[in-house]
């Protein structure tokens, strides 16, 4: 099972952040679920309570070859951000040399800390390819798996298919469009 996952190091720590309604929690859960199905150890920790009501949402995902320590990610290997405020808030939490994946539809970045800075128009791509702004999270997820090559697209699609059949087609298009952005 582990063969289907490809983690460079021992552990991949991800922070995904955006505003409420951008599907941040789902993005994180799909990564955790895919990690779990690949036989890896995972944790998924959401922001909760008043913070969510304040309009921002973030979650932390740890995908690890061994038992993860803290589910709370202090320094992330990867930061996925969907808007400008989240970028400002979480950029200091990206480790030196980590991957920054940001939504260039809604954020601009001039960053030197990250080894790999990649901005793609997740929101615009979602609207064009899947017909819904709400699928921007799936575009981002597609871009992430294309960059990291950690999970094949089929694995993610397999999970989506089991859950929300009615949205499968939209999510599939968005995911593939996200992968295509990177290529």
């Amino acid at each position: 099972m582990v063969k289907s996952a490809n983690i460079l190091g021992q552990e991949e720590k991800i922070i995904a952040a955006g505003s409420g309604g951008q599907g941040i929690m789902l993005l994180g859960k799909l990564l955790a679920e895919a990690g779990m199905r690949a036989g890896l150890r995972v944790t998924w920790l959401p922001s909760y309570g008043a913070e969510v009501r304040g309009g921002t949402a973030n979650c932390m995902v740890v995908i690890s070859k061994s038992e993860p320590g803290s589910p709370y990610v202090e320094k992330a290997d990867t930061l996925i951000v969907m808007n400008q405020p989240s970028l400002g808030r979480f950029l200091p939490r990206l480790r030196q040399g980590g991957l920054l994946l940001y939504n260039s539809s809604l954020a601009q970045a001039s960053v030197k800390t990250a080894l790999d800075v990649r901005g793609y128009p997740f929101t615009e791509t979602a609207a064009a390819a899947a017909g819904s702004l709400k699928a921007a999270n799936m575009v981002a997820l597609g871009a992430y798996i294309a960059v990291k090559k950690m999970f094949p697209a089929e694995k993610i699609l397999e999970i989506i298919q089991e859950q929300k059949r009615e949205l499968l087609e939209m999510n599939r298009k968005a995911l593939l469009a996200g992968i295509a952005l990177v290529k």
């Binding site: 929690m25 955790a32 779990m36 036989g39 859950q163």
Partner: peptide, 17 residues
């Protein structure tokens, strides 16, 4: 707690999040 996981199928290893 998560809408995605309502009624989720259990995978081969009988593990769920």
């Amino acid at each position: 707690s998560g809408m995605l996981y309502r009624g989720a199928k259990v995978n081969k290893e009988k593990k769920i999040l």
